[in-house]
Amino acid sequence: MFDESRQMTMPMPAHAEEDRPTKRAMMRGFRKRCPNCGNGPLFEGYLKVVDHCPVCEEALYHHRADDGPAYLTILVVGHIVAPLLHVVFTAFRPDPLVLFTIFTVASVAMSLFLLPRLKGLVVGIQWARRMHGFGGEE
Rank of each mutant, 00 (worst) to 15 (best):
M1L: 09
F2N: 13
F2H: 14
F2C: 08
D3Q: 06
E4K: 13
Q7A: 14
M8Q: 15
T9E: 13
M10R: 14
M10C: 10
M12K: 15
M12D: 15
P13N: 10
P13C: 02
P13R: 11
A14E: 15
H15C: 09
A16Q: 12
R20G: 07
R20N: 08
P21C: 09
T22D: 11
K23T: 15
A25E: 10
A25F: 04
R28W: 12
G29Q: 04
F30V: 11
C34V: 07
N36S: 15
C37F: 10
G38H: 05
G38A: 06
G38V: 01
G40F: 00
L42V: 02
L42N: 05
F43G: 00
Y46K: 04
L47E: 01
L47H: 09
K48W: 00
K48R: 13
V50N: 07
D51L: 04
P54A: 02
V55D: 11
V55Y: 05
V55F: 04
V55T: 10
C56F: 07
E57Q: 13
E58G: 05
E58R: 09
E58F: 03
E58Q: 14
E58V: 06
A59F: 07
A59V: 08
A59N: 12
L60A: 06
H62P: 08
H63P: 07
H63E: 13
R64Q: 15
P69Y: 01
A70F: 08
A70I: 07
A70H: 10
T73K: 09
T73M: 09
I74P: 06
I74F: 15
L75M: 14
L75W: 15
G78L: 00
I80S: 06
V81F: 03
P83I: 03
L84G: 10
H86T: 13
H86I: 11
V87E: 12
V88C: 06
F89E: 14
T90D: 12
A91F: 10
F92A: 11
F92W: 10
R93Y: 14
R93T: 13
D95L: 03
D95Q: 06
D95G: 04
T101M: 02
I102H: 03
I102P: 00
I102G: 04
V105Y: 01
A106F: 02
S107C: 03
A109Y: 04
M110C: 03
L112P: 01
F113D: 06
L115M: 07
L115W: 08
P116M: 00
P116K: 00
R117T: 03
L118M: 07
L118Y: 09
L118D: 07
K119I: 00
K119F: 02
L121N: 08
L121D: 05
G124F: 00
Q126K: 01
Q126A: 01
Q126M: 01
W127S: 03
A128S: 09
R129C: 08
R130M: 07
M131W: 06
H132Y: 14
F134M: 06
F134S: 11
F134A: 08
G136F: 00
E138N: 12
